Simulated assay, not measured.
Amino acid sequence: MSRRHRRRKPMAQINVVPYIDVMLVLLVIFLVTAPLLKQGVKVDLPRVPSKPVSSQATQPPLTVTVNAQGIFFVSQGANPTQPLDAAALRRIVGEVLSKNPKTQVYVRGDSHVSYGKVVEAMGILQQAGAEKVGLVTEPPAANSQR
């Protein structure tokens, strides 16, 4: 009673199914978490036709946001600060500009905030040492007729 052992022939192919499963799981994770990573202050920017600003800076610009309630926020990169008063805004912007005076500075003013609050922000930036201040707007919608 000899029992013959069949030897399986070795497979020369790579089983890629586990790799595809892992990639699909990662894709789902990134699709779910991507909207959560976007942080910021909700601002309804005015819609006006304008040219985009060319950025040749090596670091992200400093953006001061004035929301609809007239509260100031500062961000450099993606994460905005907590609500600030005028003195704290002046201090933070002054510190950033003292480290790098060539930092580009922009103001994002909500279209529903009073003009005086945006001008106040620009005055604070000038006192803090900003030589040039840009205003951020959104292009008008293609289908809107104003």
Rank of each mutant, 00 (worst) to 15 (best):
64 V>Y: 01
80 P>E: 12
146 R>S: 14
96 V>S: 04
65 T>G: 05
52 P>C: 05
59 Q>V: 11
74 V>S: 00
102 K>A: 12
66 V>T: 04
119 V>R: 02
122 M>A: 03
30 F>H: 03
109 G>S: 10
111 S>P: 03
139 P>V: 14
129 G>A: 08
121 A>N: 07
34 A>S: 11
38 K>M: 07
122 M>R: 13
50 S>C: 06
99 K>I: 03
11 M>G: 03
29 I>R: 04
61 P>W: 02
50 S>T: 07
61 P>E: 06
84 L>D: 03
52 P>E: 13
129 G>Q: 12
102 K>M: 06
119 V>P: 04
51 K>A: 12
142 A>K: 14
80 P>L: 09
143 N>R: 14
121 A>R: 02
58 T>P: 06
69 Q>S: 11
40 G>Q: 03
127 Q>L: 08
95 E>L: 08
29 I>E: 10
121 A>E: 03
62 L>I: 10
11 M>K: 02
124 I>S: 05
60 P>F: 00
40 G>F: 15
81 T>D: 05
71 I>K: 12
71 I>P: 00
101 P>H: 04
111 S>F: 10
121 A>K: 04
98 S>F: 05
118 V>D: 03
73 F>M: 02
91 R>P: 00
89 L>Y: 04
22 V>Q: 14
86 A>W: 11
85 D>H: 05
